[in-house]
Design a protein around this nucleic acid. Structure first.
Lengths: 233, 233
DNA sequence: GGATCCAAAAAGTCAGACTTATATGTCACA
DNA sequence: TGTGACATATAAGTCTGACTTTTTGGATCC
Protein backbone atom coordinates (compact mmCIF):
# COMPACT_ATOMS: atom_id res chain seq x y z
CA UNK A 1 0.00 0.00 0.00
CA UNK A 2 2.30 2.75 1.20
CA UNK A 3 5.81 1.99 2.38
CA UNK A 4 6.20 -1.72 2.88
CA UNK A 5 9.42 -3.28 4.02
CA UNK A 6 11.30 -0.20 5.10
CA UNK A 7 13.47 -2.34 7.28
CA UNK A 8 12.98 -4.91 9.97
CA UNK A 9 11.34 -2.49 12.34
CA UNK A 10 8.80 -1.78 9.61
CA UNK A 11 7.87 -5.42 9.45
CA UNK A 12 7.39 -5.50 13.19
CA UNK A 13 5.13 -2.45 12.96
CA UNK A 14 3.08 -4.01 10.18
CA UNK A 15 2.24 -6.83 12.55
CA UNK A 16 2.09 -5.11 15.91
CA UNK A 17 0.30 -1.97 14.76
CA UNK A 18 -2.75 -3.71 13.31
CA UNK A 19 -2.85 -6.08 16.29
CA UNK A 20 -3.00 -3.23 18.77
CA UNK A 21 -5.48 -1.11 16.82
CA UNK A 22 -7.65 -4.19 16.39
CA UNK A 23 -7.88 -4.40 20.16
CA UNK A 24 -5.99 -7.68 20.34
CA UNK A 25 -4.18 -6.30 23.36
CA UNK A 26 -6.74 -4.61 25.61
CA UNK A 27 -5.80 -1.22 27.06
CA UNK A 28 -3.51 -1.70 30.01
CA UNK A 29 -1.94 -4.84 28.59
CA UNK A 30 1.77 -4.96 29.26
CA UNK A 31 4.28 -6.14 26.71
CA UNK A 32 7.98 -6.64 27.30
CA UNK A 33 10.50 -5.44 24.75
CA UNK A 34 12.72 -8.48 25.15
CA UNK A 35 9.88 -10.91 24.73
CA UNK A 36 8.63 -9.07 21.64
CA UNK A 37 12.14 -9.03 20.20
CA UNK A 38 12.29 -12.80 20.59
CA UNK A 39 8.82 -13.30 19.17
CA UNK A 40 9.63 -11.30 16.04
CA UNK A 41 13.15 -12.66 15.89
CA UNK A 42 14.79 -9.26 15.79
CA UNK A 43 17.40 -7.60 17.96
CA UNK A 44 16.41 -5.46 20.91
CA UNK A 45 17.58 -2.32 19.09
CA UNK A 46 15.16 -2.95 16.23
CA UNK A 47 12.37 -3.73 18.64
CA UNK A 48 13.04 -0.54 20.55
CA UNK A 49 12.77 1.50 17.36
CA UNK A 50 9.40 -0.06 16.64
CA UNK A 51 8.20 0.67 20.17
CA UNK A 52 9.32 4.29 19.82
CA UNK A 53 7.18 4.68 16.73
CA UNK A 54 4.14 3.12 18.41
CA UNK A 55 4.82 5.44 21.31
CA UNK A 56 4.84 8.49 19.05
CA UNK A 57 1.42 7.39 17.80
CA UNK A 58 0.28 7.16 21.40
CA UNK A 59 -0.70 3.54 20.93
CA UNK A 60 1.59 2.47 23.78
CA UNK A 61 3.56 4.01 26.60
CA UNK A 62 6.87 2.67 27.78
CA UNK A 63 7.76 2.86 31.47
CA UNK A 64 10.77 1.60 33.35
CA UNK A 65 10.39 -1.47 35.46
CA UNK A 66 6.86 -1.92 34.03
CA UNK A 67 7.07 -2.53 30.32
CA UNK A 68 5.27 -1.33 27.26
CA UNK A 69 1.67 -0.54 28.18
CA UNK A 70 -1.08 -0.49 25.58
CA UNK A 71 -3.01 2.79 25.82
CA UNK A 72 -6.79 3.18 25.59
CA UNK A 73 -8.27 4.12 22.24
CA UNK A 74 -8.97 7.62 23.51
CA UNK A 75 -5.24 8.32 23.49
CA UNK A 76 -4.47 7.17 19.97
CA UNK A 77 -3.39 9.61 17.27
CA UNK A 78 -6.38 8.74 15.13
CA UNK A 79 -5.34 11.22 12.44
CA UNK A 80 -2.10 9.40 11.77
CA UNK A 81 -2.52 7.97 8.25
CA UNK A 82 -0.79 4.80 9.35
CA UNK A 83 -3.17 4.34 12.26
CA UNK A 84 -6.12 5.04 9.98
CA UNK A 85 -4.93 2.40 7.54
CA UNK A 86 -4.40 -0.15 10.30
CA UNK A 87 -7.85 0.47 11.71
CA UNK A 88 -9.54 0.36 8.32
CA UNK A 89 -7.90 -3.01 7.77
CA UNK A 90 -9.24 -4.33 11.05
CA UNK A 91 -12.48 -5.45 12.58
CA UNK A 92 -14.09 -2.14 13.42
CA UNK A 93 -13.76 -0.93 9.88
CA UNK A 94 -17.46 0.04 9.70
CA UNK A 95 -17.26 2.28 12.77
CA UNK A 96 -14.10 3.82 11.39
CA UNK A 97 -15.64 4.44 7.99
CA UNK A 98 -18.58 6.14 9.63
CA UNK A 99 -16.55 8.51 11.79
CA UNK A 100 -14.36 9.40 8.82
CA UNK A 101 -17.42 10.05 6.69
CA UNK A 102 -18.81 12.37 9.34
CA UNK A 103 -15.49 14.20 9.31
CA UNK A 104 -15.69 14.44 5.53
CA UNK A 105 -19.18 15.91 5.70
CA UNK A 106 -17.89 18.66 7.97
CA UNK A 107 -14.71 19.44 6.07
CA UNK A 108 -15.45 19.00 2.39
CA UNK A 109 -18.24 21.57 2.06
CA UNK A 110 -16.05 24.17 3.73
CA UNK A 111 -13.16 23.17 1.49
CA UNK A 112 -15.33 23.48 -1.60
CA UNK A 113 -16.40 26.95 -0.56
CA UNK A 114 -12.79 28.04 -0.19
CA UNK A 115 -11.86 26.32 -3.43
CA UNK A 116 -14.41 28.44 -5.27
CA UNK A 117 -12.50 31.48 -4.09
CA UNK A 118 -8.94 30.25 -4.44
CA UNK A 119 -8.82 27.64 -7.19
CA UNK A 120 -6.36 28.35 -9.99
CA UNK A 121 -7.46 27.96 -13.62
CA UNK A 122 -5.44 24.73 -13.75
CA UNK A 123 -7.29 23.35 -10.76
CA UNK A 124 -10.61 24.31 -12.33
CA UNK A 125 -9.66 22.40 -15.47
CA UNK A 126 -8.59 19.38 -13.48
CA UNK A 127 -11.84 19.49 -11.60
CA UNK A 128 -13.90 19.59 -14.77
CA UNK A 129 -11.82 16.76 -16.19
CA UNK A 130 -12.43 14.64 -13.11
CA UNK A 131 -16.15 15.31 -13.21
CA UNK A 132 -16.28 14.36 -16.86
CA UNK A 133 -14.33 11.21 -16.10
CA UNK A 134 -16.91 10.33 -13.47
CA UNK A 135 -19.74 10.87 -15.93
CA UNK A 136 -18.02 8.77 -18.57
CA UNK A 137 -17.57 5.85 -16.15
CA UNK A 138 -20.84 6.13 -14.26
CA UNK A 139 -22.53 3.39 -16.24
CA UNK A 140 -21.63 -0.16 -17.16
CA UNK A 141 -20.00 -1.23 -13.89
CA UNK A 142 -16.79 0.64 -14.53
CA UNK A 143 -16.41 1.02 -10.77
CA UNK A 144 -12.62 1.23 -10.65
CA UNK A 145 -12.42 3.91 -13.30
CA UNK A 146 -15.20 5.83 -11.60
CA UNK A 147 -13.44 5.58 -8.24
CA UNK A 148 -10.22 6.88 -9.73
CA UNK A 149 -11.86 10.07 -10.96
CA UNK A 150 -13.94 10.43 -7.81
CA UNK A 151 -10.83 10.34 -5.62
CA UNK A 152 -9.02 12.78 -7.89
CA UNK A 153 -11.99 15.14 -7.80
CA UNK A 154 -12.09 15.34 -4.04
CA UNK A 155 -8.31 15.69 -3.81
CA UNK A 156 -8.40 18.68 -6.13
CA UNK A 157 -11.13 20.31 -4.07
CA UNK A 158 -9.21 19.82 -0.84
CA UNK A 159 -5.96 21.09 -2.35
CA UNK A 160 -7.62 24.03 -4.05
CA UNK A 161 -9.05 25.17 -0.73
CA UNK A 162 -5.60 26.53 0.00
CA UNK A 163 -5.82 25.23 3.54
CA UNK A 164 -3.07 22.86 4.49
CA UNK A 165 -5.13 20.99 7.08
CA UNK A 166 -7.86 20.35 4.53
CA UNK A 167 -5.38 19.33 1.87
CA UNK A 168 -3.85 16.69 4.08
CA UNK A 169 -7.20 14.92 4.38
CA UNK A 170 -6.94 13.87 0.74
CA UNK A 171 -5.54 10.48 1.70
CA UNK A 172 -8.31 9.94 4.24
CA UNK A 173 -11.00 10.70 1.68
CA UNK A 174 -9.28 8.40 -0.79
CA UNK A 175 -9.33 5.58 1.76
CA UNK A 176 -13.01 6.14 2.51
CA UNK A 177 -14.03 6.21 -1.13
CA UNK A 178 -11.91 3.17 -1.94
CA UNK A 179 -13.32 1.37 1.07
CA UNK A 180 -16.84 2.04 -0.09
CA UNK A 181 -16.18 0.66 -3.56
CA UNK A 182 -14.14 -2.33 -2.48
CA UNK A 183 -15.69 -3.56 0.72
CA UNK A 184 -19.27 -2.40 0.94
CA UNK A 185 -22.05 -3.82 -1.11
CA UNK A 186 -21.88 -2.07 -4.44
CA UNK A 187 -23.41 -4.06 -7.21
CA UNK A 188 -24.96 -1.16 -8.98
CA UNK A 189 -23.60 1.82 -10.80
CA UNK A 190 -23.07 5.02 -8.81
CA UNK A 191 -26.09 7.15 -8.01
CA UNK A 192 -26.70 9.39 -11.05
CA UNK A 193 -27.73 12.21 -8.73
CA UNK A 194 -24.29 12.12 -7.08
CA UNK A 195 -22.59 12.24 -10.46
CA UNK A 196 -24.62 15.29 -11.44
CA UNK A 197 -23.75 16.97 -8.17
CA UNK A 198 -20.05 16.56 -8.85
CA UNK A 199 -20.43 18.16 -12.25
CA UNK A 200 -22.33 21.03 -10.68
CA UNK A 201 -19.70 21.51 -7.97
CA UNK A 202 -17.05 21.80 -10.67
CA UNK A 203 -19.22 24.42 -12.33
CA UNK A 204 -19.74 26.39 -9.15
CA UNK A 205 -16.02 26.39 -8.35
CA UNK A 206 -15.20 27.50 -11.88
CA UNK A 207 -17.67 30.36 -11.54
CA UNK A 208 -16.35 31.30 -8.13
CA UNK A 209 -19.73 30.72 -6.49
CA UNK A 210 -18.59 29.72 -3.01
CA UNK A 211 -22.01 29.47 -1.48
CA UNK A 212 -23.28 27.14 -4.19
CA UNK A 213 -20.13 25.00 -4.21
CA UNK A 214 -20.45 24.54 -0.47
CA UNK A 215 -24.15 23.68 -0.61
CA UNK A 216 -23.75 21.18 -3.43
CA UNK A 217 -20.79 19.50 -1.74
CA UNK A 218 -22.86 19.24 1.42
CA UNK A 219 -25.45 17.38 -0.61
CA UNK A 220 -22.78 14.95 -1.77
CA UNK A 221 -21.56 14.22 1.73
CA UNK A 222 -25.08 13.98 3.11
CA UNK A 223 -25.64 11.37 0.43
CA UNK A 224 -22.54 9.49 1.55
CA UNK A 225 -23.79 9.48 5.14
CA UNK A 226 -27.21 8.36 4.03
CA UNK A 227 -25.61 5.52 2.09
CA UNK A 228 -23.89 4.32 5.25
CA UNK A 229 -27.18 4.41 7.14
CA UNK A 230 -28.75 2.16 4.54
CA UNK A 231 -25.88 -0.30 4.47
CA UNK A 232 -25.26 -0.48 8.23
CA UNK A 233 -28.26 0.99 10.01
CA UNK B 1 3.93 21.08 28.03
CA UNK B 2 3.17 17.42 27.45
CA UNK B 3 5.82 14.78 28.08
CA UNK B 4 9.19 16.40 28.62
CA UNK B 5 12.29 14.40 29.33
CA UNK B 6 10.99 10.97 28.44
CA UNK B 7 14.50 9.82 27.88
CA UNK B 8 17.47 10.97 25.87
CA UNK B 9 15.77 10.46 22.53
CA UNK B 10 13.01 12.76 23.77
CA UNK B 11 15.48 15.53 24.35
CA UNK B 12 16.87 15.09 20.87
CA UNK B 13 13.35 15.32 19.45
CA UNK B 14 12.63 18.46 21.43
CA UNK B 15 15.51 20.11 19.62
CA UNK B 16 15.41 18.53 16.17
CA UNK B 17 11.64 18.56 15.76
CA UNK B 18 11.19 22.30 16.22
CA UNK B 19 14.28 22.95 14.10
CA UNK B 20 12.92 20.96 11.18
CA UNK B 21 9.36 22.27 11.39
CA UNK B 22 10.76 25.79 11.62
CA UNK B 23 12.36 25.23 8.25
CA UNK B 24 15.89 25.43 9.62
CA UNK B 25 16.78 22.52 7.36
CA UNK B 26 15.24 23.17 3.93
CA UNK B 27 13.49 20.24 2.26
CA UNK B 28 16.05 17.95 0.70
CA UNK B 29 18.69 18.69 3.30
CA UNK B 30 20.61 15.62 4.26
CA UNK B 31 21.60 14.79 7.82
CA UNK B 32 23.81 11.94 8.91
CA UNK B 33 22.87 9.85 11.90
CA UNK B 34 26.41 9.59 13.21
CA UNK B 35 27.02 13.30 12.95
CA UNK B 36 23.74 14.05 14.73
CA UNK B 37 24.60 11.54 17.44
CA UNK B 38 27.89 13.37 18.01
CA UNK B 39 26.23 16.76 17.95
CA UNK B 40 23.68 15.77 20.59
CA UNK B 41 26.23 13.70 22.49
CA UNK B 42 24.16 10.56 22.46
CA UNK B 43 24.80 7.06 21.20
CA UNK B 44 23.80 6.02 17.71
CA UNK B 45 21.05 3.79 19.08
CA UNK B 46 19.37 6.74 20.78
CA UNK B 47 19.80 8.84 17.68
CA UNK B 48 18.28 6.12 15.54
CA UNK B 49 15.20 5.99 17.77
CA UNK B 50 14.73 9.73 17.40
CA UNK B 51 15.09 9.48 13.62
CA UNK B 52 12.50 6.70 13.55
CA UNK B 53 10.01 8.94 15.30
CA UNK B 54 10.68 11.85 12.94
CA UNK B 55 10.27 9.36 10.11
CA UNK B 56 6.89 8.22 11.40
CA UNK B 57 5.81 11.87 11.38
CA UNK B 58 7.00 12.08 7.78
CA UNK B 59 9.30 14.95 8.65
CA UNK B 60 12.29 13.02 7.31
CA UNK B 61 13.03 9.94 5.26
CA UNK B 62 16.00 7.71 5.89
CA UNK B 63 17.71 6.04 2.94
CA UNK B 64 20.77 3.85 2.80
CA UNK B 65 23.96 5.36 1.50
CA UNK B 66 22.26 8.76 1.39
CA UNK B 67 21.33 9.75 4.90
CA UNK B 68 18.33 11.28 6.61
CA UNK B 69 16.56 13.56 4.16
CA UNK B 70 14.29 16.36 5.32
CA UNK B 71 10.92 16.08 3.56
CA UNK B 72 8.91 18.99 2.13
CA UNK B 73 6.17 20.45 4.26
CA UNK B 74 3.55 18.82 2.04
CA UNK B 75 4.56 15.42 3.42
CA UNK B 76 4.38 16.24 7.11
CA UNK B 77 1.77 14.69 9.37
CA UNK B 78 0.33 18.07 10.22
CA UNK B 79 -2.34 16.51 12.45
CA UNK B 80 0.23 15.04 14.79
CA UNK B 81 -0.22 16.97 18.06
CA UNK B 82 3.52 17.03 18.54
CA UNK B 83 4.07 18.53 15.10
CA UNK B 84 1.32 21.06 15.73
CA UNK B 85 2.97 22.09 18.98
CA UNK B 86 6.39 22.40 17.36
CA UNK B 87 5.01 24.53 14.57
CA UNK B 88 3.00 26.74 16.89
CA UNK B 89 6.18 27.37 18.83
CA UNK B 90 8.03 28.40 15.70
CA UNK B 91 8.16 31.25 13.29
CA UNK B 92 5.15 30.59 11.09
CA UNK B 93 2.87 30.48 14.08
CA UNK B 94 0.45 33.00 12.50
CA UNK B 95 -0.03 30.90 9.37
CA UNK B 96 -0.50 27.83 11.51
CA UNK B 97 -3.04 29.54 13.73
CA UNK B 98 -4.99 30.61 10.70
CA UNK B 99 -5.17 27.20 9.08
CA UNK B 100 -6.17 25.63 12.39
CA UNK B 101 -8.86 28.26 12.87
CA UNK B 102 -10.25 27.50 9.42
CA UNK B 103 -10.33 23.84 10.38
CA UNK B 104 -12.15 24.75 13.58
CA UNK B 105 -14.74 26.73 11.67
CA UNK B 106 -15.51 23.68 9.57
CA UNK B 107 -15.55 21.12 12.35
CA UNK B 108 -17.01 22.80 15.41
CA UNK B 109 -20.40 23.75 13.97
CA UNK B 110 -20.90 20.18 12.80
CA UNK B 111 -19.77 18.89 16.19
CA UNK B 112 -22.21 21.20 17.96
CA UNK B 113 -25.04 19.94 15.79
CA UNK B 114 -24.23 16.35 16.69
CA UNK B 115 -23.76 17.29 20.34
CA UNK B 116 -27.30 18.63 20.43
CA UNK B 117 -28.48 15.16 19.48
CA UNK B 118 -26.12 13.03 21.53
CA UNK B 119 -25.07 15.00 24.60
CA UNK B 120 -25.73 13.27 27.91
CA UNK B 121 -27.37 15.21 30.77
CA UNK B 122 -23.95 15.34 32.45
CA UNK B 123 -22.40 16.89 29.37
CA UNK B 124 -25.21 19.42 29.19
CA UNK B 125 -24.55 20.41 32.78
CA UNK B 126 -20.84 20.72 32.15
CA UNK B 127 -21.55 22.86 29.15
CA UNK B 128 -23.78 25.22 31.08
CA UNK B 129 -21.21 25.38 33.84
CA UNK B 130 -18.48 26.31 31.37
CA UNK B 131 -20.65 28.97 29.76
CA UNK B 132 -21.42 30.46 33.16
CA UNK B 133 -17.73 30.39 33.99
CA UNK B 134 -17.05 32.34 30.82
CA UNK B 135 -19.68 34.92 31.73
CA UNK B 136 -18.31 35.26 35.25
CA UNK B 137 -14.79 35.93 33.96
CA UNK B 138 -15.63 37.97 30.90
CA UNK B 139 -14.92 41.29 32.57
CA UNK B 140 -12.05 42.69 34.58
CA UNK B 141 -9.15 41.20 32.60
CA UNK B 142 -9.57 37.73 34.06
CA UNK B 143 -8.19 36.35 30.82
CA UNK B 144 -6.72 33.15 32.20
CA UNK B 145 -9.88 32.14 34.00
CA UNK B 146 -11.91 32.97 30.92
CA UNK B 147 -9.60 30.90 28.71
CA UNK B 148 -9.90 27.93 31.05
CA UNK B 149 -13.66 27.82 30.74
CA UNK B 150 -13.57 28.58 27.02
CA UNK B 151 -11.29 25.61 26.37
CA UNK B 152 -13.41 23.36 28.56
CA UNK B 153 -16.54 24.47 26.72
CA UNK B 154 -15.22 23.55 23.30
CA UNK B 155 -13.81 20.27 24.56
CA UNK B 156 -17.20 19.24 25.89
CA UNK B 157 -18.85 20.10 22.58
CA UNK B 158 -16.32 18.06 20.63
CA UNK B 159 -16.58 15.10 22.99
CA UNK B 160 -20.37 15.23 23.14
CA UNK B 161 -20.54 15.00 19.35
CA UNK B 162 -19.90 11.31 19.82
CA UNK B 163 -17.49 11.38 16.90
CA UNK B 164 -14.02 10.22 17.73
CA UNK B 165 -12.33 12.30 15.02
CA UNK B 166 -13.99 15.44 16.30
CA UNK B 167 -13.22 14.60 19.90
CA UNK B 168 -9.50 14.30 19.17
CA UNK B 169 -9.39 17.88 17.96
CA UNK B 170 -9.91 19.08 21.51
CA UNK B 171 -6.19 19.56 22.03
CA UNK B 172 -5.89 21.50 18.80
CA UNK B 173 -8.69 23.85 19.78
CA UNK B 174 -7.09 24.28 23.18
CA UNK B 175 -3.81 25.27 21.56
CA UNK B 176 -5.51 27.75 19.28
CA UNK B 177 -7.49 29.40 22.06
CA UNK B 178 -4.46 29.51 24.32
CA UNK B 179 -2.38 30.94 21.51
CA UNK B 180 -4.89 33.70 20.95
CA UNK B 181 -4.90 34.69 24.59
CA UNK B 182 -1.18 34.41 25.18
CA UNK B 183 0.44 35.60 22.00
CA UNK B 184 -1.91 37.80 20.05
CA UNK B 185 -2.78 41.30 21.01
CA UNK B 186 -5.48 41.00 23.62
CA UNK B 187 -5.61 43.94 25.93
CA UNK B 188 -9.36 44.05 26.19
CA UNK B 189 -11.92 41.75 27.68
CA UNK B 190 -13.47 39.12 25.41
CA UNK B 191 -16.15 40.23 22.98
CA UNK B 192 -19.46 40.22 24.90
CA UNK B 193 -21.24 38.98 21.79
CA UNK B 194 -19.05 35.86 21.77
CA UNK B 195 -19.80 35.21 25.42
CA UNK B 196 -23.51 35.43 24.77
CA UNK B 197 -23.17 33.05 21.83
CA UNK B 198 -21.54 30.43 24.03
CA UNK B 199 -24.39 30.67 26.51
CA UNK B 200 -26.87 30.28 23.68
CA UNK B 201 -25.05 27.26 22.26
CA UNK B 202 -25.25 25.60 25.66
CA UNK B 203 -28.98 26.31 25.64
CA UNK B 204 -29.49 24.93 22.17
CA UNK B 205 -27.58 21.75 22.97
CA UNK B 206 -29.56 21.30 26.18
CA UNK B 207 -32.78 21.66 24.22
CA UNK B 208 -31.58 19.30 21.50
CA UNK B 209 -31.89 21.97 18.83
CA UNK B 210 -29.19 20.80 16.43
CA UNK B 211 -29.82 23.34 13.73
CA UNK B 212 -29.59 26.23 16.16
CA UNK B 213 -26.52 24.86 17.95
CA UNK B 214 -24.77 24.52 14.61
CA UNK B 215 -25.71 27.99 13.42
CA UNK B 216 -24.66 29.68 16.68
CA UNK B 217 -21.37 27.80 16.76
CA UNK B 218 -20.73 28.89 13.20
CA UNK B 219 -21.16 32.45 14.36
CA UNK B 220 -18.55 31.88 17.04
CA UNK B 221 -16.01 30.47 14.60
CA UNK B 222 -16.74 33.15 12.01
CA UNK B 223 -15.97 35.63 14.75
CA UNK B 224 -12.68 33.88 15.46
CA UNK B 225 -11.74 34.07 11.77
CA UNK B 226 -12.72 37.71 11.62
CA UNK B 227 -10.55 38.38 14.64
CA UNK B 228 -7.55 36.91 12.82
CA UNK B 229 -8.26 39.09 9.80
CA UNK B 230 -8.17 42.18 11.98
CA UNK B 231 -5.00 41.20 13.80
CA UNK B 232 -3.06 39.93 10.77
CA UNK B 233 -4.79 41.19 7.63
C1' DG C 1 29.42 7.61 -25.51
C1' DG C 2 27.46 3.94 -23.09
C1' DA C 3 27.38 -0.29 -20.47
C1' DT C 4 29.69 -2.79 -16.71
C1' DC C 5 31.92 -3.32 -12.65
C1' DC C 6 34.05 -1.77 -8.24
C1' DA C 7 34.69 0.56 -4.06
C1' DA C 8 33.27 3.75 -0.61
C1' DA C 9 29.66 5.54 2.29
C1' DA C 10 25.98 5.53 5.23
C1' DA C 11 22.13 3.19 7.14
C1' DG C 12 20.79 -1.17 9.09
C1' DT C 13 21.45 -5.01 12.24
C1' DC C 14 23.15 -7.54 16.09
C1' DA C 15 25.07 -9.01 20.64
C1' DG C 16 26.52 -8.05 25.10
C1' DA C 17 27.60 -5.33 29.00
C1' DC C 18 26.32 -1.87 31.89
C1' DT C 19 23.14 1.93 34.14
C1' DT C 20 18.97 3.68 36.08
C1' DA C 21 14.52 4.12 37.70
C1' DT C 22 10.89 2.03 40.16
C1' DA C 23 7.36 -1.29 41.76
C1' DT C 24 7.09 -4.39 45.28
C1' DG C 25 8.05 -6.99 49.08
C1' DT C 26 10.44 -7.13 53.76
C1' DC C 27 11.28 -5.88 58.19
C1' DA C 28 11.67 -3.07 62.12
C1' DC C 29 9.30 -0.02 64.92
C1' DA C 30 5.39 2.27 66.83
C1' DT D 1 -1.94 -4.02 63.36
C1' DG D 2 -0.47 -0.40 60.64
C1' DT D 3 3.31 2.47 58.84
C1' DG D 4 7.47 3.94 57.18
C1' DA D 5 12.25 3.05 55.74
C1' DC D 6 14.99 0.04 53.17
C1' DA D 7 16.52 -3.64 50.15
C1' DT D 8 15.90 -6.17 45.89
C1' DA D 9 14.58 -7.61 41.60
C1' DT D 10 13.07 -6.22 37.14
C1' DA D 11 12.65 -4.18 32.79
C1' DA D 12 13.61 -0.20 30.24
C1' DG D 13 17.42 2.78 28.90
C1' DT D 14 22.09 3.49 27.22
C1' DC D 15 26.55 2.67 25.10
C1' DT D 16 29.96 0.41 22.27
C1' DG D 17 32.00 -2.02 18.61
C1' DA D 18 31.74 -5.13 15.01
C1' DC D 19 29.49 -6.67 11.09
C1' DT D 20 26.01 -6.59 6.89
C1' DT D 21 23.53 -4.56 3.16
C1' DT D 22 22.18 -1.39 -0.05
C1' DT D 23 23.14 2.20 -3.13
C1' DT D 24 25.54 5.84 -5.40
C1' DG D 25 29.05 7.60 -8.18
C1' DG D 26 32.95 6.97 -10.55
C1' DA D 27 36.47 4.31 -12.96
C1' DT D 28 37.20 1.19 -16.51
C1' DC D 29 36.62 -0.96 -20.68
C1' DC D 30 34.57 -1.75 -25.01
Amino acid sequence: MSTPGRGLHGHVLDTLGPAITAGEYPPGSVLRTDELAQRFDVSRSVMREAVRVLESMHLVASRRRVGVTVLPQSEWNVYDPQVIRWRLAGADRPRQLRSLTVLRSAVEPAAAGLAAKHATPEQCSELTECALGMVANSRGHRLEEYLFHDVAFHRVILNASGNEMFARLGDVVAEVLAGRTHHEVMFEDPDPAAVTLHVQVAEAVREGDAERAERLTREITVGALHELDILAP
